[in-house]
């Protein structure tokens, strides 16, 4: 199976390729991609160099242009697609209908992948994207079980890619404006979710309090690990219940599901985390490359190697297991 790995910087790209990534995905340093964080991503020259480095080692590079262009500002996104074609990207990862139409029209030979931000969650809508915009691969949203993924693959002709490790969206991706409700900045419009610029920590009698846009997201006792205040993983109150109403601060680890995902017809496994360090990316990529090779050789999946890299030290298989719902 193809291993698709994140790179937020040229150094992370090189580290991921050297650690065994078959494919790297990355973005330009602006609002055109969904990890628009300070100090992250590639300028045009870095992208061209990164692609040359990867291609020389027979790895591919996909460029994520997966936010939704602002009305009146489409040229920024169109230039990103034009430049992706120019620097020789192996594919662009798109979510917006207007951009898919633009890419199909202007760059018909540039391979188009459908971003998870389009949340294409069934065979009919995937066939719509394939037939209408010539999409060749779909990154599936994190709302599907393994059985549902298998059923989808029986009814479509394009490839599927699924997330196996990293931060977990609880909501259908690209269809969530919780972050902008609290902060004014959203994944769809700004390429950020629960941005650090709006996070405050305060030592209070009840413990370390983390707020996002002034809203309390969680409070942790002294000495406890304090996860980043991602809105949907916060601790809230509803009636007589206090807890993680939406999702616990766990991250996705589907290593053990690699054989089942392969049987379900999945082409590529994706690792989340373009915002992560080069060392983190290298370690995760090495572990998953070992897991993929173990699977290819018919051996059991390696256990527990990635647990300490998981956010908040807890891991889940998320929606892949039906009980998650």
């Amino acid at each position: 199976m193809e291993l698709v790995c994140p790179a937020g910087t040229p150094a992370a790209l090189r580290a991921a390729v050297e650690a065994g990534a078959h494919t790297i995905y990355c973005g330009f340093a602006d609002e055109t991609n969904a990890r628009n964080f300070p100090g992250l991503n590639f300028d045009r020259a870095e992208m061209a160099e990164g692609i040359a480095f990867a291609h020389a080692r027979r790895a591919k590079v996909l460029i994520a242009i997966n936010t939704f262009p602002h009305a009146g500002a489409e040229p920024l996104w169109h230039r990103a697609i034009d430049d992706a074609a120019k620097v020789g990207a192996d594919a662009v990862i798109l979510a917006d209908i207007g951009l898919l139409a633009y890419a199909a029209d202007r760059h018909p030979d540039l391979r188009r992948h459908l971003s998870v931000q389009a949340a294409a969650a069934n065979a009919d809508v995937i066939n719509f994207y394939a037939e209408t915009f010539g999409v060749r691969r779909v990154v599936l949203p994190r709302v599907l079980t393994v059985d549902e993924i298998a059923a989808i693959n029986r009814e479509i002709d394009v490839e599927t890619e699924v997330f196996v490790f990293g931060g977990l969206c609880v909501m259908a991706e690209g269809r969530c404006s919780l972050s902008s409700y609290a902060t004014g900045k959203s994944p769809n419009m700004n390429g950020v979710c629960s941005p650090a610029s709006h996070v405050d920590y305060a030592e209070e009698p009840g413990g370390l309090t983390a707020r996002l846009g002034g809203y309390t997201i969680h409070r942790t006792a002294k000495g406890e690990p304090a996860p980043y205040p991602t809105l949907c993983k916060g601790c809230f109150v509803s009636g007589d219940q206090t807890g993680h109403v939406f999702e616990d601060p766990a991250s996705l680890n589907a290593t053990q599901l690699i054989p089942a995902l392969a049987r379900a017809g999945v082409t590529a496994l994706k690792i989340e985390g373009r915002q992560r360090s080069r060392a983190y990316v290298a370690e995760v990529v090495r572990s998953f490359r070992a897991a993929v090779e173990a699977f290819d050789a018919g051996r059991a999946m390696p256990e527990g190697a990635l647990a300490k890299l998981s956010e908040g030290q807890a891991a889940t298989t998320g929606a892949y297991a039906k009980t998650w719902r």
Binding site: H70, A73, E74, D96, I97, V125
Partner: peptide, 27 residues
């Protein structure tokens, strides 16, 4: 949900609701 477009015959007029991502002129 764009799923509905896959079965809608070409030329049949339709409305688009607030849960479809219409952020820009191209879309």
């Amino acid at each position: 949900d764009l799923t509905a477009l896959q079965s809608l015959p070409a030329g049949q007029p339709f409305w688009v609701g607030p849960l479809i991502n219409v952020y820009n002129e191209g879309t």
